[in-house]
Design a protein around this nucleic acid. Structure first.
Lengths: 328, 328
DNA sequence: ACGGGTTCTGTAATCGATTACATAGCAGGT
DNA sequence: ACCTGCTATGTAATCGATTACAGAACCCGT
């Protein structure tokens, strides 16, 4: 329709400066008139890319991840990348399935929000048919060679403990995340270190098992209530557990911060609207997603290939609300 | 390596029954040894499909959508479809961008969780360069010809009102969602109809403006508190607003259900752990996502093309918890 | 008028899997 | 021995965009 070859059309679209003014006009005019849209599949085949970033989410049903996904999408879409999501914890997602997804023919890049990927899957990174480049965000697999965008979990835990200490609490407990999770370990380590530095007791019965869920927070509260000598301050490794904890003591006729000061971690949406509003450690979830996506995109566009892309640690912040108060 | 042509390899992979036992073995053995993985881009180009479903989410940051996405992913992944997400409310997503995404070269199918897509975009459905088939889920554009998977919002609202009525409430208010939203309208209509059927007053000052957010629920609570004659029961069109409403009256020294019974809508995660636990209308979010994805997949695989795919309305359920009680 | 240089455009190969068509091989029947 | 029919496989075209290469058109200076 524009009276030119397909080669020229292609040039007009993907590299407009090499075609003449008049031709470019004619081509774009014809494109408008026909409603032509470029076939991404064909382009990607020829270019040897997929134009997609796969995000591995450990549990899509967990609203914690939604803002991180939003951040990834915000950074990826303007760069022309599609964002593809895979739930790594679905029953259908066995390891072979997963590997198929992770292969380079499906995605140019991976972002994993799941730190517990099957190890032998990660081990294949060096092979001939390698996985696409991978970035961890939020969670990560310790001692793996992959770049990560994370927050300083130890520092966050320490902030929570110091906050309780400043309010006069001397008996401080901790509700942990699921065993084996990196975040659990780091937050636990930060808690213990801060307690020791402040000269506070570290008593095993004040460390409650949990799994980040509301339910496990409530369970921890029951254990807490059964203690002879209760901590007056409790740092929960997630806001959900903090909410569960408070819910449970309230139904038992107690309240926070009157009977116990509670600090959460994450600063999820409800934290500020819970009753009492939750004192917590804020992590910048949108920024984490954006940073991870930008890092990947820069790495793709970096032809030199030699540039070293480094881990990023984003700052956390203590948000003091109503769930903590002076020790009695 | 298997001593056969590429055609035979292709057949062994995508239609194993047509190749001989021995050849099939040889091919799969070679595949294992080389670590070969099929190039999805090339396959999709040849097959004229993309293998992807695009999900249009009005606001990825809203955790309400996470379970719906999980449901979509659960149904799509086993069928070999990738799930691609696009946030329709991002500033970068202008209309042209959006149209590029929606075009058939990027996705075989669309699921829109956004009922407020630009109308002229939907109008293009009939054109030569049509949009891929679209299914609405949760929200939808009224009077559009697209199939939808939704819940019965009017019935849900009526359940909430009847519940309050049964508890003895005779002055009932409603906190609305954003104007123009289908869900807002349906829930409002259900509310008004139920009130009329029960012979209860429908007073304009008992209908509060809102936008589904926590914040707007708190704002409605302030208006409620300023009334001379307050409703004793309030039905909020979202759980978030119900939480905001209760938060606000609690900080003013009142409480639910002592001073007002509050019913929410959605049954989001925190609803059961809020203090007081929220009485609400439960909607099956995972099932909605699954149903939408399954419908699309069936429609793709249905060669006949003639089969009529119908709207699905999934049931809602009243969950009675602690935020409602007998009228005093 | 002619060589050198620039700019623009067309030709044709290419990415990797699929598939219509052709053909080879073999069994069974007459 | 020959034909029919079936199965298994190879050959080569195809999907649509990109791009190396070649060639056309034009400008400029001598």
């Amino acid at each position: 329709m524009a009276g030119v070859s397909t080669a020229t059309v292609s040039r007009a679209i993907s590299n407009p400066s090499v075609v003449s003014e008049a031709t470019r006009e004619a081509v774009f005019d014809a494109i408008r008139r026909t409603g032509y849209h470029i076939n991404m599949v064909a382009r990607n085949l020829r270019r040897g890319r997929t134009g997609a970033i796969v995000v591995l989410v450990p549990n899509l049903g967990n609203p914690f991840f939604s803002l991180i996904l939003a951040g990834i999408e915000q950074a990826a879409a303007p760069a022309g990348f599609s964002v593809l999501i895979v739930d790594t914890k679905q029953p259908h997602t066995d390891q072979d399935q997963l590997f198929t997804y992770l292969h380079t023919t499906r995605a140019d890049e991976l972002i994993s929000l799941d730190g517990a990927l099957p190890p032998d899957l990660l081990a294949r990174q060096g092979e001939a048919n390698a996985l696409p480049p991978l970035v961890f965000a939020c969670e990560w697999a310790d001692e793996s060679p992959f770049v990560k965008v994370v927050i300083d979990n130890e520092a966050g835990a320490a902030m929570a403990i110091r906050h309780l200490h400043e309010l006069g609490h001397r008996r401080i407990g901790h509700v942990q995340g699921p065993r084996g999770n990196v975040l659990t370990e780091k937050r636990l380590a930060g808690t213990q270190k801060a307690l020791e530095e402040l000269g506070l007791p570290v008593r095993p019965e004040w460390f409650f098992a949990g799994d980040f869920s509301l339910h496990s927070g409530a369970e921890a509260a029951r254990q807490w209530m059964a203690l002879e000598e209760r901590p007056t301050g409790v740092f929960c490794a997630s806001d959900q557990m903090a909410c569960g904890f408070i819910s449970e003591i309230v139904s038992a006729g107690m309240s926070a911060p009157r009977d116990v000061s509670v600090v959460g971690f994450d600063d999820i949406d409800i934290a500020r609207h819970f009753i009492p509003a939750l004192t917590t450690i804020h992590q910048p979830r949108v920024a984490i997603g954006q940073a991870a996506a930008r890092l990947l995109i820069e790495r793709i566009n970096d032809d030199s290939g030699g540039k070293a892309f480094m881990d990023q640690t984003l700052p956390v912040e203590l948000i003091v609300r109503q769930s903590t108060g002076p020790a009695r």
